[in-house]
Design a protein around this nucleic acid. Structure first.
Length: 890
RNA sequence: GGGAGUUUAGCUCAGUUGGUUUAGAGCAUCUGCCUUACAAGCAGAGGGUCACAGGUUCGACUCCUGUAACUCCCACCA
């Protein structure tokens, strides 16, 4: 085959990623390499965790998706039908918050808009910014099947969510109920427990005095409570004390007055109250605290809600109406202090819940919400992971998963938002509820139920709320293949269950657990075979990357600066599954340097292409190098495959890095390098091109661009690396590998000797080898001679006078050169070696003379120890010989 | 408060069921090199009582117990 003439001027000094990346990404896409259709091959499917539709690319996405791309590209090259589905999530609260903020900047308040108008703005926003993130992903070379791009509010997706709601309601799994929920006063919505972040917050614990009610009350008679929330006192309905508390036994049953508003409330006794916290007396505010609510229920107390939706004081508070809760806290404290109700203020730190989205303090609030009963859904999902039908990598997350699933609570799925799937519930004038996909259907139901209901004219209003965004994304692995909206279709049957889910451990409950629950409920099958949990990307100081800290680097700029391959290398090289990765730009630099290294190896080969001799005869001097490298390649191929199976991606990458840089560039290429003005054997050249090709193929899933480019530069090709199928495993020849190691050890050892004795590389030496294994050396002698720059190499039986002695392995080397020999330095190093060997020998002697060791240790261990002993003895005697020789020359 | 995890070289990490001659990499550091593929490079070197204290064992980085530090998750102490 004619070799493509490469225009040398076109090969740049260093690898320049920009144009190469654009060129190949377009080519791959135009060639349809990323597309997947069901066929006879085995599928390998990954559904990408959909990023927020209006989000922008950050390090987390980079890590997460690089891993997925490596798995997908590897599967594609291993002959599987690889399908990687992209998409975006409507991300209800996050997106709505952004739209509200955008409108506010324009001077528009959400409350002034109709639902329809607001959604118009929201869709407009989505059209404008949605999917930017997907475009950014292309820059990293991700081989996603773009034709399958799905959005969680696509029509079929929307319908499937509604369908599931109706279905689960029918099954009695979805219900409506009044519960204490977490209320976000800024977003004006309920939050699930998972959306609340608890933070240690310094606060004040205020001791407030409640006066005893009645006519003949003496000054100071009453009870003092401790609270961090004085602004809720207007919602107090009782004071609770522990029945076993002697301080308050007399008080139980009496009444006290709420300060400032003078409402009478009873003192009750309940074991819930801790004796030694605060004052041992607790104010009970059922409307604003989970526990107080429970207490209130138990004791039949009234509920007084003193807040409005937005966290300002309501009419029921009587005072400070309309003012913000935290402003009121300050004012009340001041007023109480002035009026003598405040007896003490201590500083106190406790965990306070904050909204994940808006970062405001969450307000516990009683409200009517929609719920998913999780008990039935959880048990098959728990079993699947515990019995390893679904594998977790790393496995430690199984414990976390189990703990959560065993203590799972019902899931609050309604959100007071407009952006999302609207709850398909309609209410008639009497408050009857009809669950239906459309209003017409709801009307029909209403008319059937109630003969007074006029199907055409009676009033029926739809629930204002939307569903939690996770209530749509838990269907993701099914509905991207229309498994809910069109069950049993060809695609869902082919692609589901998917193979691997790659995601962050932070969303194990939000998303992973729920997908598993939905999978078993709707497909009666797991959604994926394995879950790979990535680490969290942190900065050098170990802080989580976040917008507020401003420590998140601009990914697009990094790609621009280092190249996509280098960026992928940088995030992968130190990121074992489940471990956090400390982001450090030096890793990207290493990646860039690696690209250049490969680029230059390619340049060297291209230069040699012209130096080839005409014949096809192998050069015998090169054959050792070629055979050795072929075995090394086979060895790494096997171990990379093993690592990939266990998801040890960074380990696989490290092996490839070392194979290419150390074994190929530093050793192999030097070994076959022709001398000045010498031709290169055509056979050697062809073997080398084959090696480079194989390495590019193995590395391609990790660094797709540079490998594809080199693949095409090095030889004219009819195909592309992107879809090239992996070759069968090569043959590993242990004997050759051993010879290679010996050769490397000798070369390194003699280089060291040159440095220590100040012998310049250009100065040729004569080498005398004293060994009883001449045959092990015979085949590597020619290479050795070239590499250590020896005029001649002889085998000898005894020490050679006037030479430098070097011990490598068990063998003895005598280096003869014109340079003066520094016997002092030699003596020093020999003594050091001797010292160490003697100590070593002592420990082995001790071990071998230990009867218990001989009696208990395995036979092969004893044999090994004996070998160590004899080897060390042999080595020691050589060193002693050398020491004597030096001493005698002095 | 409960649970899980981590602790190996200056930094980031490997180290597979306890034994493989002196515990490995990469980065960083130091020394010498512009040797015509690559100074974003080449060659070489130094650097670790494997967190600490016990225990099991002929033998422990590896197994067990305790301690300390850090990280994460869960939980209603106002």
């Amino acid at each position: 085959m004619p070799i493509m003439a490469i225009d040398k001027t076109a090969i740049t000094k260093n690898f320049e990623p920009g144009d190469v990346e654009r060129k190949w990404y377009a080519h791959w896409q135009n060639s349809g390499y990323f597309k997947s259709e069901p066929n006879d091959k085995q599928p390998y499917t990954i559904v990408m965790p959909p990023p927020n539709v209006t989000g922008i690319l950050h390090m987390g996405h980079c890590l997460n998706n690089t891993i997925q791309d490596i798995l997908i590209r590897d599967a594609r090259m291993q002959g599987k039908n690889a399908c990687w589905v992209p998409g975006t999530d409507h991300a209800s609260i996050a997106t709505e918050a952004k739209v509200v903020a955008m409108l506010r900047e324009k001077g528009i308040k959400k409350s002034d808009l109709s639902r329809e108008k607001f959604l118009e703005y929201a869709w407009e926003w989505k059209e404008k910014y949605g999917g930017i993130i997907l475009e950014q992903l292309k820059k990293l070379g991700f081989s996603l099947d773009w034709d399958r791009t799905t959005f969680t509010m696509d029509e079929h997706y929307y319908d499937s969510v509604i369908k599931v709601f109706i279905d689960l309601h029918k099954k009695g799994i979805i219900y409506r109920g009044k519960r204490m929920i977490n209320w976000d006063v800024k977003a004006l919505t309920a939050l699930s427990d998972e959306e609340v972040i608890r933070k240690e917050t310094p606060q004040n614990l205020y001791h407030l005095h409640y006066k005893l009610a009645g006519d003949n009350v003496k000054e100071g008679e009453g009870i003092t409570v401790a609270t961090v929330r004085p602004e809720t006192i207007m919602g107090d309905v009782a004071i609770a004390v522990n029945p076993a508390d002697p301080r308050y036994t007399m008080m139980v049953g009496k009444k006290v007055l709420v300060p400032l508003i003078n409402r009478e409330i009873p003192i009750i006794a309940d074991e819930y109250v801790t004796l030694d916290f605060g004052t041992g007396a607790l104010k009970v505010t059922p409307a604003h605290d989970q526990n107080d609510y429970a207490l209130g229920q138990k004791h039949g107390l009234e509920i007084i809600d003193v807040f409005n939706d937005d966290g300002t004081m309501s009419e029921s508070a009587q005072i400070y109406v309309g003012e913000d809760r935290f402003a009121v806290r300050k004012k009340i404290v001041k007023e109480m202090e002035e009026k003598g109700f405040l007896t003490k203020t201590e500083s106190y730190t406790s965990e306070v819940g904050y909204s994940e989205r808006t970062d405001v303090v969450v307000e516990p609030r009683l409200s009517m919400q929609w719920w998913v009963s999780t008990e039935k859904l959880a048990s098959p999902a728990l079993k699947a992971v515990m019995e390893e039908e679904i594998q977790f990598y790393p496995a430690k997350y199984r414990n976390l998963y189990r703990h959560w699933m065993e203590n799972i609570k019902d899931w609050c799925i309604s959100r007071q938002l407009w952006w999302g799937q609207r709850i398909p519930a309609w209410y008639d004038a009497d408050g009857n509820i009809y669950i239906a996909a459309t209003e017409a259907e709801a009307r029909k139901q209403a008319a059937e139920k109630d003969s007074n209901f006029d199907e055409k004219n009676s009033v029926l209003t739809q629930d204002e709320d939307c569903l939690d965004t996770w209530f749509s994304s838990w269907l993701w692995p099914m509905e991207v293949f229309k498994g809910i909206s069109d069950p049993g279709n060809k695609e869902i049957e082919y692609y589901y269950p998917t193979q691997t889910l790659v995601t962050a451990p932070e969303i194990i409950f939000f998303w992973v657990a729920r997908m598993i629950m939905a999978g078993y409920d709707y497909k009666n099958a797991k959604p994926f075979d394995a879950v790979y949990f990535t680490g969290i990307v942190r900065d050098k100081q170990g802080r989580k990357m976040s917008k507020s800290l401003g420590n998140s680097p601009d990914l697009l700029q990094l790609i621009e600066q280092y190249g996509a391959d280098a960026t992928r290398f940088g995030v992968m090289i130190a990121s074992p599954a489940g471990n956090d990765i400390l982001f450090d730009e030096s890793a990207l630099e290493q990646g860039r340097n690696f690209c250049n290294k490969m680029w230059n190896a390619q340049k060297l080969l291209l230069m040699w292409q012209e130096k080839q001799d005409s014949g096809d005869k192998p050069n015998p001097d090169d054959s050792v190098a070629i055979e050795w490298f072929a075995s090394r390649l086979a060895e790494v191929q096997k171990s990379v495959a093993d690592h990939m199976k266990q998801f040890k991606l960074s380990e696989a990458l490290k092996q490839l890095y070392s194979l290419i840089w150390d074994d190929f560039c530093s050793w192999y290429l030097e070994w076959i390098k022709p001398g000045m003005d010498q031709p290169m054997a055509g056979h050697t050249y062809k073997a080398s091109v084959k090696f480079l090709t194989s390495m590019m193929q193995m590395l391609h899933p990790f660094m797709p661009f540079v490998t594809e480019e080199i693949y095409h530069n090095i030889e004219e090709r009819a195909d592309d690396l992107c879809v090239k199928q992996a070759p069968a495993a090569g043959i590993i020849n242990e004997n050759i590998l051993e010879q290679g190691s010996t050769l490397k050890a000798v070369i390194s050892g003699l280089r060291d000797t040159r440095v220590k004795n100040n012998i310049k590389p250009r100065e040729a030496i004569s080498l005398h080898i004293c060994t009883d294994r001449n045959e092990n050396y015979s085949s590597i002698i020619p290479l050795m001679q070239k590499q250590v720059n020896a005029k001649e190499i002889h085998f000898v039986d005894t020490a050679v006078e006037g030479t430098i002695n070097v011990v490598i392995g068990k063998e003895q080397f005598y280096v003869e050169s014109d340079a003066p020999i520094d016997t002092g330095a030699q003596l020093e190093s020999l003594k050091k070696e001797k010292d160490h060997l003697e100590k070593f020998l002592l420990s082995i002697d001790k071990k071998l003379s230990n009867e218990k060791f001989i009696a208990n240790a395995k036979e092969e261990v004893i044999i090994l120890e004996k070998k160590k002993q004899s080897d060390a003895k042999e080595k020691l005697s050589i060193i002693n010989e050398n020491l004597n020789a030096i001493a005698s020359t002095k």
